[in-house]
Simulated scan of single mutants.
Amino acid sequence: MSPHNTPIVDTEHDLELTERVIAPDGSRIANPQLDRYIQDVDFRMLRDLHRDMVVVRRIDSEGVALQRQGQLGLWAPCNGQEAAQVGTGRALAARDFVFPSYRETGVMYTRGAAPGDYARMWRGEEGAAYDPAELRIAPLQIIIGAQSLHAVGYGIGIQHDGADEVAVAYFGDGATSQGDVNEAMIFASSYRAPVVFVCQNNHWAISEPVGLQSQYPLAGRAPGFGIPSMRVDGNDVLACLAAMRWALDHARSGKGPAYLEAVTYRMGPHTTADDPKRYREETELAKWRERDPIARLEAYLRAAGELSQEHLDAVQAEADVAAREMRAACIGMVTRPAIEVFDGVYAEPHSGLDRQRGEYAAYLASFEEA
């Protein structure tokens, strides 16, 4: 689990430095570090992971379509990152608490999100997209890397409560250049907080390639803070499951924080407000399409004789239902009156709030008069 010291200069070579158990061609690879964490995984569980990834990809594509049709203000696609999110998400215990960025649609799915939960925040409706206490997920975080500090604070609270939980922070490669993430790792290490940091290295921080941010693998930074790390193939869902189990076991057993770098790729835009064709080549996309996480698992299952057409049809039907339910929930949302933004701000009413409400009411009325 020691960090690699090879500079990032070549994507092909860089990918070979990751831990994996299923190769891009679908063949099984023995891995002494990871195999012991997935001894219980049978073909039924693998088909479940396959179903999860297919459904998440369909939900993601529906989110893009809803935004393009004006139903959502924005959407942050996760196409290509399904294995990193589903694999790590399925390793979590129900009692663990997740602190996401804005791209963790797959993690939300593994935590039992309802159809409307995926769209509510991006539509600008009331609330934090979902009930954080019910799903055990903090509100989606737009400020890059801020959730890492929230996770560590929660982790220190776990210590004080003596609870059997782990706080998990998800962030992208771009966030590792933010002070918040580095400060979070300092605190987590100093207090031996039960926190797992999951960096989804999707190679692009908007238009900036990861090689420009760091000349060395991002997982190599964590040991400098006294945090053990592992660099895993983020398009290998089984490897992501195993690596996350290792990290959770480390944090839950009182040994302090752990760090995962899941090397994956963002196939779509940073958000629907972005045009990736302006800064990356089609040849790069073509190479990563050959490493598609869903196709990889399908190849492994097919070679083992464990992928039937009945399963594929059932999974696609389930994915289509999930998309229809998400669309119906989104379009059916009723936006509350704008003036109600003042409701619930303070426990007790006061004159300052009344004055602001009056001024805002007058502002809204001006549109009606016009």
Results as ranks from 00 to 15, higher is better:
216 Y>K: 00
190 S>F: 12
171 F>V: 12
207 S>P: 02
195 V>F: 01
192 R>W: 00
180 D>V: 00
197 F>Q: 12
197 F>K: 12
200 Q>Y: 05
175 A>N: 01
196 V>L: 01
194 P>I: 12
170 Y>N: 13
179 G>C: 07
197 F>A: 08
213 Q>N: 15
170 Y>D: 09
224 G>Y: 04
188 A>V: 06
179 G>F: 09
224 G>K: 03
209 P>E: 10
194 P>S: 07
169 A>P: 08
187 F>D: 08
188 A>D: 07
189 S>N: 05
213 Q>G: 13
175 A>H: 00
188 A>E: 13
206 I>Q: 03
189 S>V: 09
190 S>P: 04
212 L>Y: 07
191 Y>R: 12
188 A>N: 14
216 Y>G: 06
195 V>W: 00
217 P>C: 08
224 G>S: 09
210 V>S: 15
182 N>C: 11
205 A>F: 08
171 F>S: 03
214 S>L: 05
205 A>N: 11
194 P>F: 02
225 F>W: 03
203 H>E: 09
217 P>T: 07
181 V>K: 14
188 A>W: 14
178 Q>L: 07
211 G>V: 11
183 E>M: 10
198 V>N: 07
218 L>Y: 11
183 E>W: 06
188 A>T: 08
214 S>E: 08
171 F>D: 04
180 D>H: 11
204 W>P: 10
212 L>P: 00
223 P>A: 08
198 V>I: 15
180 D>P: 06
207 S>Y: 10
224 G>W: 01
188 A>I: 10
217 P>S: 05
203 H>F: 15
192 R>M: 01
214 S>V: 10
